[in-house]
């Protein structure tokens, strides 16, 4: 075949490819609009999400060849105690986040709701400020405040005349709680704003009607406000729990999971397996567990959310 012939063949192929593409987009123009997003979404979100299951059955150090090793990674990952220690720490963080962020958040929202618009605006801004700061920065500032010798907290305790000098993030028994305090500081204000959005969505005429029917404030709160807040409550609770299972930054910056494994959480343990111990397969196996937990929580949120919506609009 002469090169000239080859060239014209290529040109023919190219021009027919263009023609096909053109006709696809003419007949199905929606793909023209969807394609750019899919070109990023598929390789960098969908494929990794599927790939995590694939990686979990291979032995791989991050470099060189992968070798298939079946359920070995899962066996190794889940016969080590550390994964359960981490999981338990995530559960502890979730519990305290529910109590402190969601629970105290609701109380604060109810208080702020009664202020005049101007004050309410003031509280909304000051309460949301912590969440706009990067978590690394927040962790560093708190790490500085927790410093046992020149940190603000112990300096104040000493100035008050107490000889209690906690080690905070340096102590095995306190590290996890010290981290929970930081998460509470950064996220409680955000929960307050979410609760306020829920309170705002309550139709005031319902409360007015109940008042006319003689219901007192406690009855109105118990029988109208609370039930109507249920969808928001579900959303806030589940996303607080999901956030707790995804904890990483505070732990990594302040303690690296230490002392020992006293503040190890699932994501730091995944990180260590992959990037410090070069065991990507095992890291993927632990990620599968985290994935399943988060997915179940998201599905629970959708399920409960749907039921609420179904109940509200019969």
């Amino acid at each position: 075949m002469s090169t000239q012939k080859q060239g014209s063949n290529l040109r023919a192929v190219a021009s027919s490819a263009v023609a096909i593409t053109k006709s696809v987009f003419e007949e199905r123009p929606h793909w023209l609009f969807l394609l750019p997003a899919l070109l990023i979404y598929l390789p960098f979100l969908v494929i990794p999400a599927l790939g995590i299951f694939g990686l979990s059955v291979f032995q791989w150090s991050g470099l060189g060849d992968m070798s298939f090793n079946g359920i070995e990674n899962f066996v190794r990952a889940f016969t080590s105690d550390i994964v359960y220690t981490s999981l338990w720490h995530n559960i502890e963080i979730a519990f305290w986040s529910l109590v402190l962020q969601a629970g105290v958040g609701l109380v604060l929202a109810l208080v702020i709701y009664r202020f005049s618009d101007r004050w309410r605006q003031f509280f909304q801004v000051t309460y949301l400020l912590p969440m706009t700061l990067m978590s690394v920065a927040v962790s560093m500032v708190w790490g500085y405040m927790y410093n046992p010798s020149y940190g603000v907290l112990n300096t104040v305790i000493k100035a008050l005349g107490s000889d209690w000098s906690p080690l905070w993030i340096g102590s095995e028994s306190q590290a996890l709680y010290a981290i929970i305090i930081v998460a509470t500081w950064q996220w409680t204000g955000f929960r307050v704003i979410l609760w306020l959005a829920g309170l705002d969505s309550i139709d005031e005429s319902l409360l007015e009607a109940a008042r006319i029917d003689g219901a007192g404030p406690i009855q109105r709160f118990r029988y109208i406000t609370l039930p109507l807040l249920k969808p928001v409550a579900i959303f806030i609770s589940i996303y607080t729990i999901i956030g707790s299972f995804n904890s990483f930054v505070y732990v990594w910056v302040m303690t690296r999971g230490g002392p020992g494994h006293a503040s190890e959480v699932m994501v730091t343990w995944i990180y260590k397996n992959a990037f410090l111990q070069s065991n990507f397969g095992r890291a993927a196996a632990i990620s599968v567990l985290l994935f399943v937990i988060v997915l179940l929580l998201s599905l629970l949120n959708m399920r409960l959310g749907d039921r609420e919506a179904g109940g509200a609009n019969p």
Binding site: L45, A49, L290
Partner: peptide, 26 residues
């Protein structure tokens, strides 16, 4: 069209932390 909507929304359920290892691999 409904499938595509759900397909995009499904990404909402996948936190970045979970994909750390496979995304690094890619």
């Amino acid at each position: 069209d409904n499938f595509m909507l759900v397909f995009f929304l499904a990404g909402f359920m996948i936190p970045p932390q979970v994909l750390l290892v496979p995304l690094y691999t890619i």
